[in-house]
Design a binder for these strands. Structure first.
Lengths: 337, 337
DNA sequence: CTGTTAGCGCATTCAA
DNA sequence: TTGAATGCGCTAACAG
């Protein structure tokens, strides 16, 4: 910066002013400074700026380490959040936190301006820690009562309702929900499952439909077992929502091995997954695809707005999954009278 | 830090020494300093340290934006690299670079100490840019001639050979390879495909086996089409290597729809994927699973060693995929005489 | 073994 | 509209 200033015959302060548009600079000197910067290939040093301005322009994507491995659909979060951050002049650092110490380091070393919290549980201790630390943060997901927090999340309520309506519209009256379970240990109370179950029960009751609900681990093997269990426990069921993209292929092939045809004998609708994952099944599943990319983007933007003191935006965003027709949903073989 | 120094009755420098173990400190004063740090909950500011030491302890994971979306197996890279970095006191920032400007910013703003380069092509312009910029970097993957570079990669040569030997050992003599294609545009010359093809051709020739090679896009739909094509073009083939985890489910179900049974009529071996992806198929595929986690870890460690001037380690690491038996490989129905 | 001191590269206040 | 000077929090000589 010294060099630029010298070459442009201005002070180092003026260079700073023109770079940051922080004070009026006459067109003439601005031109000289910019020319000098060009010539020297100048890029202002990020660390110096961070120290002086107390803003690193680094955001952390905080996710729980040691827990379930990330599903196919989740990568999109990572990359979309990173890209959005870049577009706004920020950087995104991956922050795997397995324990309090790592969370402590996150908030107290001054490395990051803000935090994006993923895989939020209904009761999430990390939220309180972040609040106590005064670190600005936004959630991708929601706690039980998130009204005072900034968050973006899938609109499970409306997504589930739309899913049910799709099947009900085809004539199904007995519909099941297979989810990935509430988890154990630290992952207990995983928000999406909690909300999906509640929405399912409520909507089914409101529509006067027969509901069946169960869960299995997030693996094809568990899905295969679930197929058997479902056929035994809910014989009259003709429609099934699956919110467990990893179990889906096992479920579908398990059904096939039991002589059950999808969609002729059972309509299957995958929830909160992606078209790609749906296409890995045979038949290709109809899917409500998760807005991963949009959530990543909006989460970052929400956080950045917060950092800039712009809280005029809505602090809460719920985004529905998008319906994508596949070959796994059809009217039931014996429509209800 | 001032506060800590005051509380411990030492100079600020002494605090720095004990924190960094950079100079001998007497046990007594060390104890006092540590006590003071405890009491004040002191964590040294990352930005101050970075500015003074010219080391940010931030690494960038550089990946091509705008290109193919990341496959299931790739997330493990991200998280494993991030975790490893953390263990060594580093942070990992996601760096999606779609153009030269973003690469320029990476190398010239002083934000990162080193770069991990993913999705390397055989001829990769980014490598030259990084070299020109004097930024330390390591590759996950390899260019055509990587001898002068630090890299970790899958050992495609031995993996392919092991895969062929598995099938040959079962009695197969006519074996195909289905890969994801060399790609177009910027992704042209994607290393894994180039190397796998070469290794396949070479090993098949060395074993005196009949080889057939083709490719299709990375999608289940393309896999379904490929099934038909394969049956028409290579009717005598009894074994197939698939290095295209996204097409595999379509391939397998396509075969089923054509009345071809796996493994009875055709043995299928998935390459450089994961057990999880293999399990999404029916039958569950035998797989050579990619060492994604290890590659992420070793890539980071290689880079950090480099940063610390420890180049005594091997600068090159090739890791084989691990064989995991599934239900998709068996002796051919009509073993060769 | 410990203290003093000079920057690291930049943003920003205060004068001019 | 511009310049001079101060300091962000810490590391690393250099002295002692």
């Amino acid at each position: 910066m010294q060099d630029v200033a010298k070459l442009a015959n201005v002070s180092i302060a003026t260079v700073s002013f023109t770079v940051n548009n922080t004070k009026p600079v006459s067109p003439a000197t601005r031109a000289r400074v910019e020319a000098a910067m060009q010539e020297l290939g100048f890029r202002r040093n990020a660390v110096g700026r961070a120290l002086a301005s107390k803003r690193t322009h680094i955001l952390a994507l905080l996710y729980p380490a040691l827990q379930h491995r990330f599903r196919g659909t989740v990568v999109d979060f990572f990359t979309s959040a990173a890209s959005t951050a870049n577009e706004h002049g920020y950087n995104l650092v991956l922050w795997p936190a397995a324990n309090d110490a790592e969370l402590d380091e996150l908030t107290s070393t001054g490395l990051v301006d803000g935090v994006l919290l993923m895989e939020v549980q209904v009761e999430d201790p990390r939220v309180e820690q972040l609040q106590a630390s005064k670190t600005p943060f936004a959630l991708i997901g929601r706690t039980a009562d998130p009204s005072a927090l900034d968050y973006v999340d899938i609109d499970f309520e409306n997504t589930i309702a739309a899913a049910i309506d799709h099947l009900a519209g085809l004539g199904h009256t007995s519909i099941g929900l297979l989810d990935g379970g509430l988890g154990r240990g630290q992952l207990r109370g995983y928000g999406p499952v909690v909300r999906a179950r509640a929405a399912f029960a409520e909507t089914m009751a409101a529509r006067g439909l027969t509901a069946y609900s169960t869960s299995c681990d997030e693996s094809p093997g568990a899905g295969r077992e679930a197929a058997t269990r479902l056929l035994d426990d809910a014989p009259g069921m003709t429609g099934l929502l699956i919110m467990n993209e990893h179990a889906a292929p096992g479920l579908v092939s398990g059904l096939r091995h039991r002589g059950i045809s999808v969609p002729d004998d059972l309509s299957v609708l995958l929830i909160a997954s992606s078209r790609e994952m749906a296409a890995m099944n045979d038949p290709e599943l109809t899917v409500m695809s998760a807005p991963s990319i949009e959530l990543g983007r909006r989460g970052v933007e929400l956080l950045i707005d917060h950092l800039n003191g712009r809280s005029d935006h809505d602090r809460h965003a719920l985004v529905m999954c998008a319906f994508e027709q596949g070959n796994s949903t059809a009217p039931p073989r014996h429509p209800a009278a």
